[in-house]
């Protein structure tokens, strides 16, 4: 700062002041931006934008099984420039699947992935959507007599066979099992659940050793009644003819039955075959509280559903049936 003639130069002094003030303002700016980022207001939209809109309508969207299917469908669809929206069954008003179909049709979606739970008017809505130029794909439970373009799920005959193959050896070795209850939400004669029940029943009745000893009963879980599952399960487990083995055909029922067995202190007395490998179900397997569980590949189901609907949107054609992988896992598989 010292000049040759001994005078102090003004420049560095002013420059120092200016630099300090500028640094202070950079600091304030950083604080400001951090606050705005925290409020998530700097960028109004951070989500990806897509070309197509697909609605996914299922009976129990909160189910871990459906959440997983949705996750895989969404991921696969994103690669095809499609967005999959999982329709909620409503907050203030409880919507039926038909209502959700009406909403989706009116919203002008490009495609619909729907689980046919057998509710009233759903088939008409599938046809209505199709007539409106919306491609519909059914998942898990088919609606073959509609204008849906494809079905993604298990073949019920194959599933029934899988259950029978696993059940018969168990029943032969464990002679204490005399009554089997099969909980089903969809009791339509042409529904998947009934098909599975029917196949198991046919196989058991065809077996000489078991036909007289074992009785299999279908227990319907009412869809129209809120929280009806637990009520029906407890009634069944406390009933006069107490089942020694329970078969569940959906993940929500599996969890409810398992919890009821624990609550009612029936572990060991009542055995169960579950559905889907949710953490609770896997826990039950590990503790030997569950014989086995049917695991349907949610990845297959999600990805195939997305593929089917987007193919149909793009080309108007797709396979009419996509088979997903399914297998039973027991406590040995989860150790």
């Amino acid at each position: 700062m010292e000049k040759k003639d001994g005078k102090r130069s003004i420049g560095p002094i002013v420059a120092t002041g200016v630099i300090i003030i500028v640094l202070l303002f950079i600091f304030v700016n950083l604080i400001y931006n951090r606050i705005i980022d925290e409020a998530n207001m700097s960028a109004p939209g951070t989500g990806e934008t897509y070309a197509r809109h697909i609605a996914m309508i299922v009976g129990s969207p909160q189910d871990e099984f459906w959440q997983d299917v949705y996750k895989h469908a969404k991921e696969d669809a994103a690669e095809r420039d499609c967005f999959v929206e999982l329709k909620e069954t409503g907050n203030s008003t409880v919507y039926t699947l038909s209502d959700l179909m009406t909403i989706s049709i009116a919203s002008g979606v490009d495609g619909i992935i729907v689980e046919n739970d057998g509710s009233e008017g759903l088939k008409e809505k599938i046809d209505e959507a199709s007539d409106a130029g919306i491609q519909v794909v059914t998942v898990l439970n088919d609606a073959a007599d509609t204008k849906r373009v494809s079905y993604v799920g298990l073949n019920p005959y194959t599933a029934g066979k899988m259950y029978s193959e696993k059940l018969i050896p168990i029943l032969k070795s464990d002679k204490s099992i005399k009554n089997i209850a099969v909980f089903m939400k969809d009791d339509r004669v042409d529904g998947n659940d009934f098909q599975i029940f029917s196949d198991i029943n046919t196989e058991l009745m065809g077996n000489e050793e078991l036909a007289d000893r074992v009785t299999i009963t279908a227990v319907r879980i009412p869809k129209e009644k809120a929280f009806g599952t637990e009520e029906v399960v407890q009634e069944t487990l406390e009933g006069e003819i107490k089942p020694e083995l329970v078969i569940c055909l959906d993940s929500m029922t599996t969890e409810t039955v398992y919890q009821s067995i624990i609550d009612m202190n029936l572990a060991g007395e009542v055995q169960m075959i579950g559905y889907y490998d949710s953490p609770n179900t896997v826990g039950a397997l590990k503790r030997n509280n569950m014989l086995m569980t049917l695991v349907i590949s949610t990845e297959d189901m999600g990805a195939y559903a997305s593929q089917a609907v987007s193919d149909a949107i793009e080309t108007g054609r797709t396979n009419s049936y996509y088979a997903v992988n399914a297998d039973f896992i027991s406590s040995e598989d989860v150790r």
């Binding site: 989500g47 990806e48 934008t49 967005f83 919203s107």
Partner: peptide, 22 residues
Amino acid sequence: DEIVDEPVKIMERNIRGMSESF
């Protein structure tokens, strides 16, 4: 009217579509 992976935007799009249908 955009198809964006944001619940609010999708809801807006649905309301818009339903309003047109209505």
